[in-house]
Computed example of a mutant assay.
Amino acid sequence: MTDDKALAAPKAQQPQRKPQARSLERRRAILDATRKLLETNTVSEISLYQVAEKAEIPPSSVYHFFPKVDALLNTLVKEVFAEFDTILDQPLKVENIGHWSDIMRQIQARYIDYYQQHQYARDLILGQHIVSAIHHADYLHDEQLGCRIRHFHEQFYQLPPLPEEYNIFAIALQIADKVYSISHQEFGNITDTMAQEGINACLAYLRQYLPENMCLQNN
């Protein structure tokens, strides 16, 4: 008599399941709802119950993905940083660079435009009630951006010896952000006047290290 077990085909190993589309959609809905809430509420006013109501999903689902508000905000900040990186990925308009300061002017103009269009980003990065973890993450990300901005300058100009213990381009970004923060808190956005003041402030700092006339790189 034939052994049925011997004839049974071995079970194929089941592939590891990917995250379900429903879960990804809910996570995205939570983050999008938080962005919308930050259009009318400050960071300190946001609660997970508000987010659940805005996203039209059960509060338990929000807690499943983000047990605390801070975890939700930190994830949203990472998305803002990714958008900052994308902005910096855009090529510079070489034809508009006649002086080293034009590089920072172009970069700052992009970030100002982004901030002006996204209130949730202003409140997360420039707001008065910034979570300490977000503030630290912003500082670390500025360091990364500063390294990239230095590389942009090095592509065009022969830079003089610069301090090794800190990144002057990262500090310049932080100086500009401080001015934008004042504008956001006073006027609810970055006004054109304060945008120019932020650019002026970061360039004034950089001029302490970069001479007005730098030699161009040999191409």
Rank of each mutant, 00 (worst) to 15 (best):
M1Q: 15
D4W: 14
A6Q: 07
L7R: 04
Q14R: 12
R22T: 03
L24F: 05
R28A: 14
T34V: 03
K36E: 14
L38Q: 08
L38P: 02
V43C: 06
V43I: 10
L48R: 09
Q50P: 01
V51T: 04
P59Y: 09
S60N: 00
H64P: 07
H64N: 03
K68A: 09
V69G: 08
N74E: 13
T75L: 06
T75D: 13
L76N: 08
F81G: 14
F84R: 08
T86R: 15
K93G: 13
K93T: 15
E95Y: 13
I97S: 03
W100G: 07
W100L: 00
W100V: 00
Q108S: 11
Y111S: 01
I112P: 00
D113V: 10
Y114H: 07
Q116L: 07
Q119A: 15
Y120Q: 01
R122L: 08
L124Y: 11
Q128W: 10
I130L: 11
A133K: 12
L140A: 12
L140M: 11
D142M: 15
D142A: 15
E143C: 12
G146P: 08
R148D: 12
R150L: 07
H151D: 14
F152S: 02
F152Q: 09
H153T: 01
H153L: 00
F156P: 01
L159W: 07
L159E: 08
E165L: 07
I171H: 12
A176E: 01
A176N: 08
A176Y: 02
V179A: 04
S183N: 00
G188N: 03
T191W: 07
T193W: 12
A195T: 00
A195W: 02
E197A: 15
G198P: 09
A201H: 00
C202W: 09
C202N: 13
L203M: 04
L206R: 04
Q208H: 07
C215H: 14
C215Y: 12
L216N: 02
